[in-house]
């Protein structure tokens, strides 16, 4: 039984009043925009020889519309989980098809991908992993400082989040790499990247951790204190484990975002994934090959983080709702 205001209110697409107008709209717009000129148009032309121009546009539009219609028809008859996976897979296939349409040289990719992974990916992962750990520590300290009753700690924490959330990450990288030598400290490129990413993401995550800790009712602190627990135990055994439910989803976002922002470190010449992707293609003018390859590697790593986040979320959700 579905009610109109349920969020799962029925598969709209199964209703003819939605399904057919939708297909009509797809057909008309494809025809209108000259679908015959596309890669799919060429495919249709290969299957059925016909005159180019309007007939091909019509045929292509009809072909795609039928494909979409059939697809919806099939997907709507599956169980929810299968629907999700199938749609995900189809969209992924479309993206790959889009890349494929660039007419890439796979021989070139094959020659370069080894180096892209052993040098670029490894450096990217190394920088990100170290930064994630340091940023988490900074965030925890920042959040505790902001929630403390110590004015100095609060002042430092407020200034820290304000500055490092306020400056562009690129600027922070330059300031550490080019600015610190003015004070007599020369910092190498990789430590620069790690420092900038840690400080910047630590500042964002400070706010996430603070909100997470503040989401725990006062009674939890009181109960733990009343039992005689030491402050460190109260935090690590009672408050933080409960805050995780609030902290994990946005933190997962931050980690994925950091993984890709580590590409900014390429400006100071670190041989990470983005830097290699830009430089390796130059010799043979095959930029797009390297860009697509690097993009897919970034995406795959993000998917791994996504799955990891999901696992951790499930773990901290096991106590159900309160």
């Amino acid at each position: 039984m579905h009610f109109r205001d349920n969020i799962d209110y029925p598969p709209m697409l199964t209703r003819p009043a939605v399904f057919f107008p939708l297909l009509t709209a797809i057909f008309v717009s494809l025809w209108w925009f000259g679908a015959g000129n596309s890669a799919i148009g060429r495919l249709v032309l290969g299957l059925v020889p016909m005159a180019e121009g309007n007939p091909l546009n019509l045929a292509t539009a009809a072909f795609v519309t039928a494909l979409v219609g059939f697809n919806i028809f099939v997907v709507m008859r599956l169980a929810l989980r299968q629907q999700v996976w199938l749609v995900w897979g189809e969209l992924a296939a479309l993206i790959l098809l889009f890349f494929y349409s660039f007419d890439l040289s796979f021989a070139f990719i094959q020659r370069k991908i080894g180096f892209l992974i052993t040098q670029g990916l490894v450096t990217t992962l190394y920088i990100s992993a170290v930064s994630i750990v340091i940023a988490t520590v900074l965030a925890l300290m920042g959040a505790v400082a902001k929630l403390s009753s110590n004015g100095i700690a609060q002042g430092i924490a407020h200034f820290y989040t304000s500055l490092f959330r306020g400056l562009p990450l690129l600027m922070q990288i330059y300031m550490i790499y080019l600015g610190l030598p003015q004070l007599g400290y020369v910092v190498d490129a990789v430590p620069t990247g790690i420092a900038a990413l840690s400080l910047c993401y630590g500042a964002y995550m400070t706010e996430i951790f603070r909100a997470g800790i503040e989401s725990i009712p006062k009674g939890q602190w009181e109960a733990a204190r009343a039992l005689g627990m030491r402050p460190i135990s109260v935090m690590t055994r009672i408050i933080l484990p409960q805050s995780m439910r609030v902290i994990i989803p946005p933190t997962g976002n931050q980690f994925i975002s950091m993984l890709k922002d580590s590409s900014l470190v390429s400006v100071v010449g670190v041989w990470e994934l983005m830097y290699l992707a830009r430089t390796q293609g130059q010799t043979e003018f095959r930029h797009i090959e390297m860009m697509v390859t690097a993009s897919l590697i970034y995406w795959l790593m993000s998917i791994v983080l996504e799955l990891l986040q999901k696992r951790i979320e499930t773990h901290f959700n096991k106590a159900a709702t309160r």
Partner: peptide, 16 residues
């Protein structure tokens, strides 16, 4: 606090 036990109006059990 170790010599004094306390029971609260809102129970305050640890939900996790």
């Amino acid at each position: 606090r170790r010599r004094v036990g306390m029971v609260f109006q809102q129970f305050n059990l640890f939900p996790h």
